[in-house]
Computed example of a mutant assay.
Amino acid sequence: MDRLLRIARSGTPDTGIQFRMHAYGKDDIRAFLRDVLAMANASVEGNRYIVVGVDFDEKGRKIARSIDSTDFSGKPSYHALASEYIEPPIRIRYAPVSLDGQRVGVFEIGDCQDRPYMMRADFSEKLRRGDAYTRIKNTSIKMGRRQLMELFELKFRDSVSARDIEVGFPGEIIHKDILIPTCDLSAMPSALASAKLEEMLNIRNRPTSSGSTTMVARLTHARLYGTEDPYVDRSPEDILIELNQIRSKYLHQDNHFLFHDRAEKMQLVVLNQGEEPIVDASLALALPNHDSFYVADTLPKRAIGDRFVDRSPDEIARYPAVTFKNDSIHVAAKIGDIPVGEPVEVFVSPLRLCVGSDLRGRRLGVRYSLHGQNLRAPAKGKLKITFR
């Protein structure tokens, strides 16, 4: 944190440091992606920084303008946006620091050794797949074909062929398919609570006299919730409201059920069979989305007694970046250097899955793309998951 404060306090606008008056927020994501691309492709050594909430007066003196705390809450998730739209993957973190009594934000973009960085998907009409930007002094400019060719030539000077790379599931040999057991999702805490509420709702909706309905409701409540839980007379409307809120009420309990109690931990390995180590490697996965296929986008909170407490920042940082789309789930992980002839695990903290019994007997494909600074082209392929 002291390093980020020094950047905010002492840094000046340059190729590796950008200052911006306002937070990007949800309304300026295009500018965020453009600026991150420009920083990642800049010809500087080491980390790069974007400081938000700092302006300059006519004499060039810094003026700190406080950034709302909600900008650091993960909405929008700047890390997830970078993972979803930029390739190869970029290491990025965002943290608040106090400058002259004001809360400002600092983006730290990790040492970018895998240039060129480009848009992997369309964001808008003005920021399309394949677009790339770089930063020269304190200005971001769109890269042309000649500039991209120079970076590719530099990248492939001492390169490794994708044909020499094997990606798969670990074992005595590297497997291209894996069996994952399913479970009964009706045992989820929110599902159990919903079933009880629906039974109570059915009783309240019975066309019988008020007195007999209340008596049956009291007896049913005692059977479902126990005699220690006092009965509260609720209308059908009240029960419906509670049903609509059931998933949010049991969010942490459900996540603990899915990604701790019944979780399957999925690991991948990469084997480099070439003659040179792969430098600064990263892996991207695309999995199909399904109502009964759950993938954790962060580690579940830790259960201590009847409370759920946050994981440590280090634990959270070790888990891969996961983003969701309508029909797919995207996972990105930074691996680092991959030596020759030695399988290397992809995830520091394995990916956590939970699969409902609706998928039993089904098979899903998983597409992968391995990037590396000295890979001539990404190593791409497909793996298979069979559910039992």
Rank of each mutant, 00 (worst) to 15 (best):
218 R>P: 00
273 Q>Y: 00
191 A>H: 02
320 P>H: 02
239 I>F: 04
280 D>I: 02
141 I>R: 03
38 A>C: 03
228 E>H: 15
220 T>H: 12
348 V>H: 09
191 A>D: 00
145 R>N: 08
233 D>Q: 13
376 R>T: 09
137 K>I: 09
315 E>W: 01
182 T>W: 05
280 D>N: 14
388 R>A: 05
302 R>V: 06
351 L>M: 00
66 S>E: 10
32 F>A: 14
207 P>N: 15
175 H>S: 14
319 Y>C: 00
358 D>A: 14
63 I>P: 12
132 A>Q: 02
351 L>V: 01
353 L>V: 07
104 V>N: 10
258 L>F: 01
55 D>C: 11
342 E>M: 06
47 N>L: 08
371 H>T: 03
269 V>Y: 04
372 G>D: 07
276 E>K: 15
181 P>I: 01
206 R>L: 15
6 R>T: 00
32 F>M: 15
328 S>V: 03
115 R>Y: 02
110 G>A: 14
301 K>M: 14
322 V>W: 01
138 N>R: 13
338 I>K: 01
362 R>A: 12
294 Y>T: 02
113 Q>V: 10
357 S>K: 10
320 P>E: 02
181 P>E: 01
21 M>T: 15
225 Y>P: 15
6 R>W: 01
277 P>V: 00
359 L>D: 01
215 M>H: 09
42 A>N: 06
321 A>K: 06
355 V>M: 07
350 P>R: 04
178 I>G: 00
296 A>G: 12
27 D>V: 13
256 H>K: 08
286 A>F: 00
349 S>V: 06
283 L>E: 05
357 S>D: 15
1 M>D: 13
260 H>T: 15
70 T>V: 11
18 Q>F: 01
49 Y>Q: 07
32 F>R: 15
122 D>L: 08
76 P>M: 14
328 S>Y: 03
113 Q>S: 12
34 R>G: 00
35 D>M: 05
3 R>Q: 11
5 L>N: 09
319 Y>I: 03
370 L>M: 04
9 R>A: 12
294 Y>H: 05
308 F>K: 11
335 I>A: 01
223 R>W: 04
211 G>A: 10
179 L>A: 13
380 K>H: 04
